[in-house]
Structure formats: structure tokens, C-alpha cells
């Protein structure tokens, strides 16, 4: 039952993400590409590219897109696939909703700061590892197809890291390069 699985996967993604949007990519990739094979590694990379260029949080963007594509790839018609994107998007928000509404009052009054801080001691360095894993998993033959690929990677890396160029500009430049190079 793909809808129940989508719900469970995105609920887990929402519940266990502590490291922001990029760390969430690692969770999304594990659930959608490796565990359930709803998306090919290529499709996953394409979703990240599209999420980077559209408004809204990447966690929501990727849930909507992956929910739709996963159901479509399982052989359902597009109208049913829309339901998949609704389920994935709602499920990824649901854990925060339940958690915040149930402990919001307690949090604003006297926060158990020490336990919170303790829980985050290793979560912060762990989140760095999660983001790195997401990047490493994408270094494969689907994404690096020829000798031009590593050059494009290096150019984008330098533009973002050294010159702090906005990702949207980088993606627009790369799209133009694609039309000219391939």
C-alpha cells in the first residue's frame, strides 16, 4: 500500500530531522531512493535542483515532488499521484504539529534547557555528517556522466563557496551551459 508507506516514510522524515533542510535530504534520499526505490538517483537529484530554484522550504518542496513522482512511478494515473503529494506534504509537517502543540505551553514557561542542550551535543556534528552523506551519495555515474561533469561541479563549488553566488544564479548558469555543452 503505497499511500500508507508514503505517510510512514514522510512522518519519519519529519520526526527525525534535526539538522535543517540539507540534512533532511539525507533522510529523504534514504527513504525514497534506497529503502523504497520510489525514485531513481537521477530523479532525486532533479528534485533537489527544482527545489533550489522555487520558493518555499526544501523539505516541503521535495515532499510534494517525491510524493507525486513515487505514486506515478508505481503505475497510478496523474490524478491519483496528486493524492500522493498531498499525503507526503502533510505527513512531513505532522510530527512538528503534534510535538509543538503538546509541549508548547511547557516550552514557553520553564524550559528544561539542560536536557535540550545535552540532546543537541552530538546532534550538531551529526547533522554535518548527514549533509555530507547526501552530497557523497550523489557522486555516481547517473550524475557524473563524462569529463564535463567534474568541471561543472568544480565551477559550481567555487561560485558558491568562494564567491557566495546565489544558488538560483548558479542553476541558471548551469542550465545555459547544458544547452551549449550537450
Amino acid at each position: 500500500m503505497i499511500f500508507l508507506q508514503l505517510f510512514l516514510s514522510y512522518f519519519k522524515i519529519g520526526l527525525f530531522n534535526f539538522g535543517g533542510g540539507y540534512a533532511m535530504l539525507s533522510l529523504i534520499q534514504h527513504e525514497t531512493v534506497e529503502a523504497h526505490k520510489w525514485l531513481t538517483p537521477q530523479e532525486f537529484t532533479d528534485i533537489v535542483a527544482i527545489s533550489q530554484t522555487t520558493p518555499g522550504p526544501i523539505g516541503i518542496n521535495s515532499a510534494t515532488y517525491a510524493g507525486y513522482t513515487a505514486v506515478l512511478n508505481s503505475g497510478y494515473p496523474p490524478a491519483v499521484a496528486v493524492l500522493g503529494s498531498v499525503i507526503a506534504t502533510v505527513s512531513v509537517c505532522l510530527p512538528s504539529f503534534i510535538l509543538i502543540l503538546s509541549i508548547s505551553v511547557a516550552l514557553s514557561r520553564n524550559r528544561k534547557k539542560t536536557y535540550m542542550d545535552a540532546a543537541f551535543t552530538y546532534l550538531r556534528p551529526t547533522a554535518v555528517g548527514l549533509i555530507a552523506a547526501a552530497a557523497l551519495s550523489l557522486v555516481n555515474h547517473d550524475n557524473f556522466i563524462d569529463l564535463k561533469s567534474p568541471l561543472l561541479f568544480l565551477a559550481a563549488f567555487l561560485l558558491t563557496w568562494r564567491y557566495k553566488v546565489n544558488p538560483i544564479i548558479t542553476i541558471l548558469l548551469a542550465s545555459t551551459a547544458g544547452l551549449l555543452l550537450y
Binding site: 533537489v48 557524473f144 548551469a174 555543452l181
Partner: peptide, 28 residues
Amino acid sequence: EKIFKALRPVVVALIAVPSLTAAKAAHI
């Protein structure tokens, strides 16, 4: 297809950079 052939390695770079900036922010 042409556009996404060039975009895919670029996306990898766009995720590689935040892993480095996150490392800085987490005082690794």
C-alpha cells in the same frame, strides 16, 4: 535532458558547500 545533464553535478556542489558551512557553524 541537456539542461539536467549539466545541472546534476552542479546540485552535488550545492549540497557539498552547506556541509562545509555547517561544519564551521557547529565549530567542528
